[in-house]
Design a protein around this nucleic acid. Structure first.
Lengths: 227, 227
DNA sequence: TGGTTTTGTGACAGAAACATAACAGTTTTA
DNA sequence: TAAAACTGTTATGTTTCTGTCACAAAACCA
């Protein structure tokens, strides 16, 4: 499973370097933007999982970037943590009003920032953080890379493991073959779309090896879903 | 018990502020010095448990401070972690054998710095954390540097020892080769990632020399895990 | 129903990931 | 200072996984 991607928007180079380095050390992928323009561009292009947004930016203010991200269709769901140098309560209120999901005042504890990042990602990318994912009698422990069903241990190849993690993260939503290729294989890998079918088959077989019904649902013309 | 006191020697105010803030956030008491003079004074006066020492200092260099601390009777036992801006200097620091207990190159991961601080403190203030790591019949005693399995003493090389300690600390989580290289070999050492495999093999052999199954699990495409 | 589209699946060859032994250079130990 | 222990790399063998294809089965549609 790919590491969560964090969009870091901060104009001051040294601040940016420190944050970037520490985020990378925690295992995140970091995409950096130096101003609002670039931030908005990368937000839709790099498909980040979370955005760290500085309040003070040249040209377009952080507040404005936040507002635009939250009103854009593609980027509405992107969690945003605002970083501000000032502690005035008014700023905080305004930040959260604009739709930011959290707010931190500089100077902040890096440990606390990381903790808040994790808190936001826990909602959207639980598998990437090493959480336990459950659906009925199926249990996937991302940290120890283990899967079991009704108590029986189940051995999965890397691809099937990621596939199952996707379905568990998607919470029953239907995922198209294209979406699965993106998330499981990666964005710029070219493989035949029918290959997904084969791996779905393998995943099904593995999950049913100790009995139990088929937990995967084929949605003709659309893709697959869990449950 | 009172919190460990850390003597932070760093002349640049912003760097000092960041470090101080983060250390305090982790529950340490911080005493700050801006140059070598003050550092030497505070080292004997404030009775710190550990010293974070910047390489570049006005007047008296960090290297010189380190040397003096290590030759002073009262301060000889004070653990020192040197902070250096560039990796070339790191070599010098190492080569000159200043007596520092650990080194970090800027920019560093705050999480890693904290981890190293704890590591040093564990030696000098062992009451802080439990020293024995256990998994099933495997026992690692960090204080005496001993490992045993099912009662049999097991002799491990330094690398295998650290490797096993990592797995015991990770509590069953999968560790990637990169993570292991970071933790066992160090962040800025270049070693082929395949080398990890070899040492895993050696560790396995050592752990199984008196019988018993393989406690290490290979997670294809991801890394290794204990149990 | 018959034809058409979509999905399921077994087989297979090639690729990738991993295990292990051997080796040469280095460091530590006695 | 010689011997022993340790390290990182390389080469080779082994296992496991992948992606594609071909054909079978199922679902859909008129």
């Amino acid at each position: 499973m790919s590491a969560p991607v964090i969009l870091l928007v901060e104009d001051e180079p040294s601040q940016r370097a420190v944050l970037s380095y520490n985020l990378k050390a925690e295992g995140f992928d970091v995409v950096e933007a130096v101003d609002g323009e670039e931030a908005l561009l990368l937000a839709s292009e790099a498909q980040p999982d979370l955005c760290l947004l500085d309040w003070m930016l040249p040209h377009v203010s952080g507040l404005e970037v936040c507002r635009r991200l939250k009103s854009g269709k593609q980027t509405r769901e992107l969690p945003i943590i605002m970083l501000s140098a000032r502690s005035e309560e008014l700023d905080k209120v305004r930040g959260l009003e604009t739709g930011a999901d959290d707010y931190m005042v500089k100077p902040y504890s890096v440990a606390e920032l990381i903790a808040r990042v994790r808190k936001e990602l826990r909602r959207t990318r639980p598998a990437a953080l090493g959480e336990e994912l459950v659906y009925e009698d199926i249990l996937l422990d991302a940290a120890s890379h283990r899967v079991s069903r009704a108590g029986h241990n189940i051995k999965l190849g890397p691809t099937e493991f990621r596939l199952l993690a996707c379905f568990l993260e998607a919470q029953g939503r239907v995922l198209s073959r294209e979406q699965l290729l993106d998330r499981v294989w990666g964005r710029d890998i070219y493989v035949d779309t029918r290959t997904v079918d084969v791996h779905i088959g393998r995943l099904r077989k593995a999950l049913m090896q100790h009995g139990g019904g088929d937990p995967l649902r084929t949605v003709r013309g659309a893709g697959y879903a869990l449950g």
